[in-house]
Structure formats: C-alpha cells, structure tokens
Simulated assay, not measured.
Amino acid sequence: MATIVLSLRTGEEMVAKLDQLAEATERDRQYHLKRAVARYLEAEAWHVHSIKEGIADADAGNLSDLESVKAKWVKRAENSAD
C-alpha cells in the first residue's frame, strides 16, 4: 500500500509534549501521530455512523415519546439510589 505524506502546523507546546511522549516510549513522532489519527478517525466514524442510524430510525418512525424517556430515567435514578 502506498503511503501519502501529510503535514500539519501546530504550536510548540504540542510538539514538546509529542517529543516527551516519543522519548518516554522510545518511539518516533510519526508512530504517535499515526496512532492518534487512527483513534480519532475511528471515534468520529462511529459517531457519524450512530447519527445516521438514529436518523434512519427516526425516518422509519421508531421514536420514543418524551414522557416515556423521562419515566425510564427517573426509575433508573431511583433504583441506583438504593
């Protein structure tokens, strides 16, 4: 698989933290940046997917009325107080 070079501008403080992490783990900046970007993309993809699922549910009419949602949370709060 071909690799593509990306670049970003950031402040000195972030670079210093990245360098400290790299030194402490005996890994280079690139290793940590790739891991950070991968984790971010995974989390954001999950978020976008979940929103799309919610919209599809709403479009299909799979909705809960506000009063039943409130009752559920009140009951849960009462049970957790025990």
Rank of each mutant, 00 (worst) to 15 (best):
H32Q: 01
A43K: 09
V69N: 00
H47S: 08
S50P: 02
K75I: 10
M1V: 09
T10E: 12
N62K: 07
G11H: 06
W73E: 03
D65G: 00
D57S: 11
V37I: 09
Q20A: 15
D19P: 02
R29P: 00
A45H: 08
S50W: 08
I4A: 13
G61E: 00
D57F: 10
S64T: 10
L8F: 15
A2T: 13
L18F: 05
L63P: 01
R39T: 11
V37P: 01
W46D: 15
K75T: 12
I4R: 12
Y40E: 12
T3K: 15
D28G: 05
E26R: 03
S50C: 12
R76H: 05
R9L: 09
I55S: 01
A81C: 08
E78W: 06
V15Q: 08
S64K: 08
A81W: 10
A2R: 10
E13Y: 06
R76N: 05
T3N: 13
H47K: 08
D57G: 05
E78V: 11
K72H: 06
A81L: 14
A60G: 01
E44Y: 15
W46A: 13
L63T: 11
A43L: 11
E53S: 04
K52E: 07
W73K: 06
E42Y: 11
A58Q: 07
E12P: 05
L41K: 09
R29W: 04
Q30V: 09
D57T: 03
I4C: 07
D19Q: 06
A43Y: 07
G11I: 04
T3D: 14
A43P: 00
D59N: 09
N79E: 15
V74P: 01
L6E: 05
G11E: 11
R39H: 14
E67F: 02
A22I: 03
E78D: 13
E42S: 12
S7T: 13
L63N: 07
V15D: 04
K70M: 13
L33A: 01
G61W: 03
R29A: 01
E67R: 05
Q30S: 15
E53M: 04
K17L: 13
V74K: 01
E23S: 09
D65R: 00
R35D: 07
R35V: 11
A58Y: 09
A81K: 09
D59S: 11
E26H: 05
I55C: 01
L21Y: 02
D59K: 04
V69P: 01
D65Q: 02
S80M: 14
E12A: 09
A45P: 03
S7M: 10
R9N: 08
R76E: 08
H32A: 04
L8D: 06
A60C: 04
S7R: 11
A16W: 03
D57Y: 08
A2E: 14
N62W: 05
L8A: 15
A60Q: 02
V69S: 00
L63M: 13
K17Y: 04
A43F: 06
E12D: 14
A43N: 10
D65T: 02
Y31R: 02
A2F: 12
R29S: 01
A16R: 07
I51N: 04
E44P: 04
G54E: 04
L21Q: 00
A77G: 01
T25R: 15
A2I: 11
R35M: 08
N79K: 15
R29F: 00
V69E: 00
W46I: 09
E26D: 08
V37M: 03
A58S: 11
W46E: 15
N79M: 15
M14V: 12
N79Q: 15
T25K: 14
E53F: 02
